[in-house]
Design a protein around this nucleic acid. Sequence first.
DNA 1: CCAATCCGGTTCTAAAATAAGACTAGACAA
DNA 2: TTGTCTAGTCTTATTTTAGAACCGGATTGG
Lengths: 150, 150
Amino acid sequence: MKRTGFAEADCPVARALDAIGDLWSLLIVRDAFDGLRRFGDFQKNLGIAKGMLSTRLHKLVELDVLELVPASDGSAYQEYALTKRGLDLFPVVVGLRQWGEAHLYARGEAHSNLVDQSGQPVGQLVLPSRTGRPLTWSETRVRKAGARKR
Amino acid sequence: MKRTGFAEADCPVARALDAIGDLWSLLIVRDAFDGLRRFGDFQKNLGIAKGMLSTRLHKLVELDVLELVPASDGSAYQEYALTKRGLDLFPVVVGLRQWGEAHLYARGEAHSNLVDQSGQPVGQLVLPSRTGRPLTWSETRVRKAGARKR
DNA sequence: CCAATCCGGTTCTAAAATAAGACTAGACAA
DNA sequence: TTGTCTAGTCTTATTTTAGAACCGGATTGG
């Protein structure tokens, strides 16, 4: 049956997953962060079927995560570039990366690493309170959509 | 055809998406963070088909994201509780939430909010360098699996 | 200039995943 | 002990996916 949709949900997590919560979308965005811009580059790097890639790219353009821009080499082709909305997915991709690094590799198994400009590994993502103090999951809660502040 | 697998990938993002990159897994984890623990509670809250939920819960248990524990009310039933590995998904869920909040709601449209213990909205996720300075996407890069440090 | 090849798709098919409902065994409540 | 609740499994129709074949316009080699 048709996949369940959450585009109208009150919960932002549900809407986000409805938009990009599939196997390929975030991998495409990850590749875009790595500098890939052309259809063929994505296709080669991901090993994705061209039909899937075509569908996903069009959906990401429609969502305004990617946009079509003239090719940077002056040819008549076009390239896919991250928009502001796409760039804002950076913490999501990093979050997945850090979780994968921590839990999905055997001891000593090699994996790619995220480093800063000096080549130093980056730190862990931090959720700060409004005053800047780091928060853990147990110090937060979700206030439902219609709830009065108190 | 059989869905493409990334369980062996060098990239932690790919492995993470292979494990939990579907519509339901992270919604179940989100609900678990909100305190839901029983099969029926997840089913009611998500409106998910029972077969899907059963498959997903078993997979999450197998991945050690959730674990089965005796029911907290003393009955003979069991409950699903987040493990350490599951709790570590907190930044991923928060990242999706913040992206959804920022980009998938019309101006003024109501949505649920993440607040700290005093009811204050939380800040944005921050990726710190090893020295604690906040990093943006353009200040990081991925070092491939086998690359020598320099 | 012409043919060969590259690029970025679309179309087709089969196998697999999904949604939704019917069904069931054991727990629990009256 | 009868009926309801819980937590599933099974079945079926439909959609999604992967992979391959095909195609037209752009680019390149001779």
